[in-house]
Design a protein around this nucleic acid. Structure first.
Lengths: 275, 275
DNA sequence: CGCGGAATTGAAAATACTCAAAATTAGTGG
DNA sequence: CCACTAATTTTGAGTATTTTCAATTCCGCG
C-alpha cells in the first residue's frame, strides 16, 4: 500500500475536531494580543496525541510546556519562515494548514509538503542553521513555537521526548521517500489518487471525516506538489468526477468510492484514460 | 589494534583513494573472520570528518567507539537490510557504495538514494521499528554497525553527538527535498546533470577527483533513481558525450565541462535536444 | 568462442505539457 | 447586496518529451 506524505503512525484516538467557527473566531477577534493568553498547555491541546508530546507522561509534558514559546498566528498566505532565515525554532501546527516549498536557482518552486494540525515544521533547518524552504499558511492558522535550543536541553532530561523526536524526524524521512516513489514512478492518475487517499487518512486520524473534506490548497499547489500541471489536475478531477469516484464542488471534495481510490493509489486498479 | 593491510586510513584531503583492487582483495582474502579484528576506532577511520563522529572531541569519540558494533562486509549485490526487518542498528558506510530502494505494492522499486563512505544508513527505520526500505551493496563494501539502543543511551551523555546526529537526520531530510525538486520539476537532461554534479561534489568531499570517477550503479539504477528509463539515460549519456560535456567509457566518467554541467544542473543553461 | 546480461540505438506511441480561450469563483468597493 | 474586476479553474487542440517496444551491439566470463 502506498502511503504518502504526512504522518501515519498516529494514535487515531483523538478528540473531536475543533469546530471551524471557533478557529475563525480566534483569528478575527479584535481583542488586544495578550501573549500570556496565547500560552496553552500541550495537555489541553487536542493535538497532543499527534504532536511532539505524544506518549509523554503528564510530568514530562509539563516540562515541554515550560519551554514552548508563544503561539503565533499566521494569516492566510503569510509566511511562517523563509529559506535562508536563521533557524531558531521548530513549529507545531495547532490549527490550519501550511505548505512548504523550495525555490530553485531558476526561481521555480517545488512544494515539498502540506502540513496540518499536530505536524512539525522546520526540521529541515537543523542541519544548516538556516531554513531550507519557505513555509506559508494556506489559511488562517496557528503554530506553537518551540525554541530548538531549549528543546535540545530538554532532550537530556526527558529521554522519552528525545525518542519521540527521533521518530518524528524519521517519519519525515519516510514520508519524503514515499513522495519520491510517487514522483519517480507513478502516472498522473495514481499520483492524484495517492494524494486524495493520503489527505483522507490524515483527516481521519484527526477525527475528521475521511470521505468529505476541503482542499485547503489551490489546484496549482496540488499540481506543483505532484509534479503535474494545473491543467492536468483539473482534468484528473473531471475524470474522477465523471467516473463517480469523487464529488467535487470548488474545494469541497467527497470521496464516493474510497476503496477504488485506495486501489488506484496502490496501483492495483487503474482508470481508463477517458473516452 | 589490528589493522588490516591497506584498509581505509587514507586522508580525504591528501592521499590517493583506495584502489578498487585493494578493496576487493580484502573481501576475498580467506583468512578466518576475527570479529575483534574488525573493530576499528573512529579515530583512525578516514571518514571521521564526514561521519557520525564529526566534530567530536577525542574522549567523546572513544565513547562512541565503545558502542559501535562489529564491522560488516557486504559483498556486491548483497543486502544489508530489507524492508520490514526489525530495526536494531544504523550503519555507517566505511567503504563501498550502497543503494536504498522502496518497493511498492505492484512490486516496482524506487531507488531513494545512493550512499557512499561516511554516510549513514537506516534512519528511516527509526519511526516504525522496522526497516522502511532495502539497502543493497553496489560493490563489495563495509559498514560499521551502530546499535541504536546504545546510541540513544549515549546521546544523554554526549550532547555533541546528539546535536550532530540531528544534523545528519536533518541533512537527510533536505537531501530528499532536493530529490523531490528534481523529480517534480526538472526535465530529463537537467536531472541527469544534477546527478553527475552531485556525485562529483561528494567525491570531491572525500578527496577523490571531482571530474573523473566511476559510476558504481547500472544505467538502470540511475534511471530508476531519476524517474527515467534506462533508454533515456543511455540517450542522455550519448548526447552529453556528443556535446563534449563528458567522456564515458563503460562506467568510467570524466566531466569535461564541469562548469557547463553545473549550469545545466542549476537550470541556467540547457543543451539543445540534439540535431 | 559463444553465451548472457547490460547498454545503445531507432521508430512508434503515449502521457502529460503548452498555449489559448472560455467559464467560474473570489475579492473589492460602491 | 450587487456589480465589477481579478484570479482561478476548466476545457480544447496541438505539441513535445519521454516511454515503450524491438533490434542490435558491446562486454565480461566461462
Amino acid at each position: 500500500m502506498v502511503e504518502i506524505p504526512g504522518d501515519g503512525d498516529y494514535n487515531p484516538t483523538v478528540d473531536a475536531p475543533l469546530p471551524a467557527m471557533t478557529q475563525a473566531a480566534i483569528l478575527t477577534a479584535d481583542q488586544p494580543l495578550n501573549v500570556q493568553a496565547l500560552k496553552v498547555s500541550c495537555q489541553q491541546c487536542s493535538m497532543g496525541q499527534l504532536c511532539l508530546p505524544m506518549g509523554l507522561a503528564d510530568a514530562e509534558i509539563d516540562r515541554l510546556d515550560q519551554i514552548i514559546g508563544r503561539r503565533r498566528r499566521i494569516a492566510r498566505d503569510e509566511r511562517l519562515y523563509q529559506m535562508g532565515e536563521p533557524f531558531r525554532s521548530l513549529y507545531a501546527v495547532r490549527f490550519g494548514h501550511f505548505k512548504t516549498y523550495q525555490v530553485n536557482a531558476a526561481g521555480e518552486a517545488q512544494i515539498t509538503g502540506f502540513q496540518m494540525a499536530g505536524e512539525l515544521l522546520g526540521m529541515d533547518a537543523i542541519s544548516g542553521d538556516r531554513h531550507h524552504c519557505d513555509a506559508v499558511a494556506l489559511e488562517d492558522s496557528e503554530v506553537c513555537e518551540i525554541p530548538f535550543d531549549n528543546l535540545e536541553e530538554l532532550f537530556g532530561e526527558v529521554p522519552n521526548l528525545l525518542r519521540h523526536f527521533h521518530r518524528i524526524m524519521s517519519k519525515e524521512i519516510t514520508r519524503e521517500q514515499n513522495v519520491m516513489l510517487l514522483l519517480g514512478n507513478m502516472r498522473a492518475e495514481q499520483r492524484f489518487a495517492v494524494f486524495l487517499v493520503n489527505l483522507s487518512t490524515r483527516y481521519a486520524a484527526r477525527g475528521y471525516s475521511s470521505t468529505s473534506f476541503q482542499l485547503r490548497m489551490s489546484r496549482e499547489d496540488i499540481g506543483n506538489y505532484l509534479g503535474l500541471t494545473i491543467e492536468s489536475i483539473s482534468r484528473l478531477l473531471s475524470r474522477f468526477k465523471k467516473m463517480g469516484l469523487v464529488q467535487v464542488d470548488k474545494r469541497e471534495v467527497i470521496l464516493l468510492e474510497p476503496a477504488r481510490l485506495k486501489a488506484m493509489a496502490a496501483g492495483t486498479e487503474q482508470c481508463s484514460p477517458m473516452d
